[in-house]
Structure formats: structure tokens, C-alpha cells
Design a protein around this nucleic acid. Structure first.
Lengths: 154, 154
DNA sequence: GTCGAACGTAACAAAGATGGTTGCTTCTGG
DNA sequence: CCAGAAGCAACCATCTTTGTTACGTTCGAC
């Protein structure tokens, strides 16, 4: 990371998912370039804006490609471009494409089934977590990559 | 690790937060014991239901204690008991007490500020993430430890 | 007062996840 | 054919999380 040394880095550390951020940034940049007449960008070019390694971008855009959000062209003059209009790509699509992990997890090891709580708590929490996660998803679904770009440029 | 008993591994792995689950389980168990006439439980007793180590429970309940959700008594006959009625402890309280991490993170290292997207994306994503996180919190706030226990026993 | 049960914590190990990096393979338009 | 770029595997370093041991601290019971 950052070569090491003084850790100019800034936030270092961290644990939470920054994958949605990376992917959203890449998509917004692709859309801005498209509006400027450049349909296709290489992973190097995207990496320059996100300020990370091109491989990281290829990995991220690979996830998005699997979900149909971008398309990769290979061979000479290769690169990535949006798989569908930026107005039709929501942040929920992005989240689903890159972040399969649940927001909250159950116990790592099975609780004690001889205890009433241990026996019944898992389906209950699963339900509540799903409910909360659904509202989170709904909130992400309200914003498209196009919206994000508009707000950035505003 | 493992060392002790069989522990039947089970799900091992995982990365997401199971701290809310551990804490909610402990609180539900404390409330059930209280209804049965046992006001105070030791970390060993709670650990037996959650099926983990007593230190893990002490750490978790330590977080809850700092938030006022439980109280610890020391000395002889020590243990933990609810800091306020189970009907007044929501899962949001629990989440705030044990899980300070944001659900989604921004870039690890500062994006390229010479790019319009790199320059403007962070406050925009911060806003959107906050909005989505607020709906998540609101969903957690709708359930109390008492509700959870009722559903477990139902 | 002493005693001991249980909390509070520090220190450490094993396991995963993540980001970063290098290097090599594969594809494909010109 | 060839060069440019995606795809991908293999590593490394760092961080987080759970689990475990060990030990100091507190405080009611006696």
C-alpha cells in the first residue's frame, strides 16, 4: 500500500467494505468520460482517478461485468464501458454485484440448543436482520450512477 | 483455539459482524433469567448459552455496560443484570453499543483530486451512505430485547 | 481482615478478509 | 504477426475477529 514508508495514506486501516465506493467511483468516471466522448476507458485510466492499482479496478469491474453493469472489450483498443445507461444502474445493483456479505452475521458457532434462547434466537434474528437489510437496500436502490454523477458535478 | 470440547466448528470463517448477535443473545438470556427469578448471571452462564468463551461475553457486556444497557456487579456473588427494562432496549441501542463501524467505507486512500469525480465523490457517497444507514438504524430501532424474547418463546 | 468468586484486561494465536503488487497468459484489432 | 490490455494466479502485509490463557482487581461473605 502506498509504497510503505510514512503512510502518507491518510485513513489506513479500516475494515468495512470500500468495494461499493470503488465500483461507484469507477462507474461515475466511465459515465463522465462517455459524456465527454470517450466510450472506453482502460483499467489504468480508471485506476488513476480512484488512486489505486489497475488490478484492483479490473477485479472490481470484473464483478460489475458479471452482473452486466459494464462490458469489457479485449484485444487492441481494449477497455471497459457501461453495460447499460447510467440512469439504469442503481447503487443497489452495485452493492449486489460487489458486496455479497450480509450486514450482520449470526453466531459463528451454533448456540447451546438446550437453552430456550439458544434454540430459538437464530430464525428470529435472521428475520429482523433481513428486514433491516431490506430497508438499506431500498435506500441504495433510490440512487443511480447518473444521480451520483449529477451530484458530484453540481 | 477450539481446544476445549468438541465445538463442532460449523460455520467458521465469516467476516461480518456477529457482535450484535452475541449481545442480543446475552440480553435476551438475561431477561429470560430475570423473569425466572434469577436477576444476576455470570459471564460463564451467559457464555454457556451463547456457546462461546466467557471472556468474549465479558467484552461484549462491557460494551453494553458502557452504554448503560447492563450493569455489572463485582465481588462475591458478582455478575451482570439488565441496566433498564428489556422493553426499553432496542436493537439499535445494541448496535450502537457494540458496532461503531460504518456499514460502507469510503476509499482507503484519497482519490485523485485532479479528476472531477475524484474531487467530488466523497461527500456525495457519504451522504448517500448515511441516508441508507439511517433507514437501517430505524429498522433496528423498531425492535426491543423484549420483543425478540417474545418471538423466541412464541 | 482474609478469602474466593467473578469481573476487567492485557497479551497472544489462528483464521479470514482486503488491498496492493508482480508476473504471466489470453484475447483481438490493426 | 504483434502490441496493448484484460484476466488471473500467487504473494505479501495489514487488520479484524474470535478464541484462549493469565493475571490483577473488586467486594460480599464469613
Amino acid at each position: 500500500m502506498v509504497a510503505s514508508g510514512v503512510v502518507v495514506g491518510e485513513t489506513v486501516g479500516v475494515a468495512a467494505n470500500s468495494r461499493v465506493t470503488i465500483a461507484a467511483h469507477a462507474l461515475a468516471w466511465l459515465e463522465l468520460a462517455r459524456r465527454g466522448g470517450r466510450e472506453v476507458l482502460t483499467s489504468e485510466e480508471v485506476a488513476a482517478s480512484v488512486n489505486t492499482n489497475a488490478v484492483i479496478i479490473r477485479r472490481s469491474l470484473g464483478d460489475l461485468q458479471r452482473a452486466g453493469l459494464v462490458t469489457a472489450r479485449r484485444g487492441n483498443g481494449a477497455g471497459f464501458f457501461l453495460g447499460r445507461p447510467a440512469t439504469e444502474i442503481t447503487l443497489l445493483d452495485v452493492w449486489l454485484a460487489v458486496s455479497p456479505e450480509p450486514l450482520l452475521a449470526l453466531h459463528h458457532s451454533e448456540p447451546n440448543l438446550e437453552c430456550p434462547v439458544g434454540r430459538g434466537i437464530r430464525p428470529v434474528l435472521t428475520d429482523l436482520y433481513d428486514e433491516a437489510t431490506d430497508t438499506f437496500r431500498a435506500a441504495l436502490a433510490r440512487w443511480t450512477v447518473s444521480d451520483v454523477l449529477e451530484r458530484i458535478l453540481a
